[in-house]
Design a binder for these strands. Structure first.
Length: 217
DNA sequence: CGGTTTTGACCGGCGC
DNA sequence: GCGCCGGTCAAAACCG
């Protein structure tokens, strides 16, 4: 369904069909909502990018754009330059941000970004998703370690840590205070391991081949 | 029984 | 120094 191989074989351009396994949400409500062209599994990345709030905390003051780096599981990353002409309010206010993706490209080597994180720069990315679910399944296993009422939001903020070994990735999940139909998810850090979901997907071709060879030959 | 969630306490950064 | 605030800890409860 979210084959990571599709992602690996695409070197430069991210098509609407390209799957980013790091953000492969399994949201049945979104999937059923077919009347929005981007709100189904095929075009899910478009939906994701539309809802991007900020990425990598690198803003450009010289023009109305900034770069967002989104990381995939297999050490690829894609960058997105986003027009902020419709942006208003402060940078952490998700609801006031109406980003329009203008340029999307992908790079095969994210090692320098990993180095950047080692030097103390936090890799942060946040986005909104229209969903009734309280938590989106992104393929990783998380352990909840806190819940807090914050001033900027009438809804509670939930804190999660990646429950895989020594992986330091965290995420925060809260409903948008201004529009509760949206869920705001914030990721901090880069996973040092593969998603259990991607591992599962990568086994599928082998299983298919086995089945085919035994049934057809 | 081991992993996860809950929840109040605690901590550290920041502004005054 | 003090209070506020967001983030984290950790013990107890919960659960499969």
């Amino acid at each position: 369904m979210f084959g990571s191989s599709t992602f690996q074989e695409t070197n430069n351009i991210i098509s609407h069909q390209t799957i980013n396994p790091n953000f492969a949400f399994h949201d049945p409500l979104i999937n059923m909502n077919q009347d929005h062209g981007h709100n189904n599994y095929q075009d899910f990345d478009t939906s994701f990018l539309d809802q991007l709030v900020y990425g990598d905390q690198e803003y450009s003051n010289s023009n109305n754009s900034y770069n967002a780096s989104l990381y995939s599981q297999n050490n690829l990353f894609m960058q997105q330059e986003i027009s902020t002409s419709t942006y208003s309010g402060n940078s952490s206010s998700a609801s006031s941000f109406d980003a329009t993706p203008t340029n999307i490209h992908m790079n095969e080597n994210s090692s320098m970004e990993v180095e950047k994180e080692k030097k103390g720069k936090k890799h942060v990315i946040a986005f909104r998703t229209e969903t009734q679910l309280e938590i989106l399944d992104d393929g990783y296993k998380w352990r909840k370690y806190g819940k807090k009422k914050v001033k900027s939001n009438t809804n509670l903020r939930n804190y999660y840590k990646c429950s895989s070994g020594d992986c330091k990735v965290k995420k925060k999940v809260e409903r948008d205070g201004n529009d509760s139909t949206y869920l705001i998810t914030t990721y901090e850090g880069i996973h040092n391991h593969e998603s259990p979901f991607v591992s599962y997907c990568n086994e599928m071709p082998t299983i298919s081949l086995l089945n085919e060879s035994t049934s057809s030959w």
